[in-house]
Simulated scan of single mutants.
Amino acid sequence: MKPATDPLAQLTEIRAIMERSSRFLSLSGLSGVGAGVVALAGTGLGHWYLQTHYGDQGFLRLVEGSTAERQAAYPFLLGLAIGMIGLALLVAFYFTHRRATQEGRTLWDAPARRLLLSLALPLVAGGLFCTGLYIRGAASFVVPGLLLFYGLALLNASKYTLDEIRLLGLTQMALGLVAILLPGWGLIFFALGFGLGHIGYGLLMYNRYERAPRPTL
């Protein structure tokens, strides 16, 4: 006679199957750590450039300076942003692809496509909006705008992946709102949000979902 099946175990298994089919759960925490390191390195490079060309108060002078000064810095800042985004995407792809392969999952399934689309739409809109702010002379709102739009993108995408992404999005939005009040601290808030924020939540996700449990004695 076969033993009775545990209904609670059946429900747990059904829920796990539904989550795997609707959410991309192979997102690696190391992707966040790598993206955070890239952001901190980019922030340091940007600070060096502004300090070299505009003095110790380089970022504040850029924010409050003339249109000619902002236009002179625009090619470097745009190139730096594109380089940071490209490198962060490569790091994210490497670690997430590695985790998906280890779990026997494909990196380009339906949940992954929904995740990327829900991320991309607010990010593209936010990038274009913040570029317009810079060109129009409202450079002090660029970093707050980037943080706010990125936070909204993470909130929009969180329903397709790990729950920690929602918390990271709320953190980015909170930093963006505070950054509006402190325009001269833009680089610091950029480092906090895109750098330390990614590293902190990346380590949290890695320890929760990827780190092998220590053997008990």
Rank of each mutant, 00 (worst) to 15 (best):
T161M: 10
L192P: 01
A112V: 06
G202Y: 08
I188N: 08
I165Q: 09
Y209S: 10
L162I: 08
G46F: 11
W185G: 06
A125M: 12
R99G: 02
L121N: 00
L107E: 12
L192R: 00
F129M: 04
R98I: 00
L155V: 02
D163W: 13
V142D: 03
N207C: 14
A153F: 02
L121I: 07
F24G: 00
R23V: 05
L62K: 01
G137H: 07
N156Q: 10
M18Q: 15
G193H: 02
E69C: 07
P122C: 09
R105Y: 12
Y201M: 07
L147T: 02
E164W: 14
T171A: 15
R15G: 11
P215H: 14
L187R: 02
N156V: 03
G195E: 04
R105C: 06
P215E: 08
L11M: 14
I14R: 15
G44N: 06
S118I: 06
F59S: 03
L25Q: 08
A138C: 10
A212V: 13
R98H: 13
A68Y: 01
L25D: 09
L50M: 08
A153H: 00
R166L: 09
A179Q: 01
L8F: 09
G200M: 11
Y74D: 01
I188M: 11
A191E: 05
G79N: 08
R70C: 00
L187D: 05
L168M: 13
L167P: 03
T101A: 15
A212L: 14
T52S: 15
S22L: 12
A138N: 14
G145N: 04
L154K: 07
G126C: 06
P3S: 07
V91W: 05
G195I: 00
V143S: 05
S118T: 09
T171L: 15
R15H: 14
P7M: 02
S118G: 02
D56H: 13
A81E: 03
L45E: 09
L119Q: 01
Y74M: 10
W48A: 15
E210D: 06
L154Y: 03
L80D: 02
F129L: 03
F190C: 04
V142T: 08
E64G: 02
V124S: 12
L217S: 12
A92H: 07
L119H: 01
V38F: 11
D56R: 12
E103F: 12
N156I: 06
I199P: 07
A125V: 14
G79R: 01
L155S: 03
L89H: 12
G169P: 08
H97P: 07
L128W: 14
V33Q: 08
L177F: 14
G34R: 06
L77S: 05
F24P: 07
